[in-house]
């Protein structure tokens, strides 16, 4: 009578992914976001904007096509995973997919604000997204998971 086997979330969970794959991708994203911050502060606004836009589009790809279809996931499977031991456990792809959506919103706000004449937003959005991507990649912290719970609590309060 284990209650875990009757958990509907478990039954409908999609096939797992290697948990190191999203962290690998977050590492690339964090490095690129740091470049955006430096470009923005160096006064190279146009390149900073283009790079942030590219990062936002990559987040959109992950959020809407799923992390499994993300280019960094393909790179991970082709080049990195063959050099690593098999993963000790697989991870539900929904949390990292949700994290892509969070990344899209943060970087997307930066892009939109820059377009309406607030170029400083590029650096702020890139810095905020960098912290989340860095924590995810290096420490395994899942901001999307935390925000989802906050959302549940806010919905209850409303």
């Amino acid at each position: 009578m284990s209650p875990t086997t009757s958990d509907p979330a478990e039954r409908t969970a999609p096939a797992g992914i290697d948990p190191r794959s999203p962290r690998f991708g977050a590492g690339i994203t964090a490095a690129l976001l740091l470049v955006v911050v430096m470009l923005g502060l160096a006064g190279a606004e146009a390149p900073a904007f283009v790079l942030l836009l590219a990062i936002a589009l990559l987040f959109a790809w992950g959020a809407f096509a799923g992390v499994r279809a993300h280019p960094y996931g393909l790179v991970f499977r082709a080049l990195v995973r063959p050099r690593l031991a098999a993963p000790t456990e697989l991870e539900d792809p929904r949390p990292p997919t949700f994290a892509q959506l969070v990344g899209l919103i943060v970087t997307g706000v930066g892009v939109v604000l820059a377009l309406v004449g607030l170029p400083a937003a590029i650096v702020f959005a890139a810095a905020a997204a960098f912290i989340a991507a860095f924590l995810n990649s290096v420490f395994g912290y899942c901001l999307g998971c935390q925000l989802y719970l906050v959302g549940i609590r806010l919905r209850a309060a409303a």
Partner: peptide
Amino acid sequence: LPVLAAALLLAVATVLGL
């Protein structure tokens, strides 16, 4: 400035993570 800001961001993120 850009390099210092990047280093500061890295340091802040590392402390948060730890």
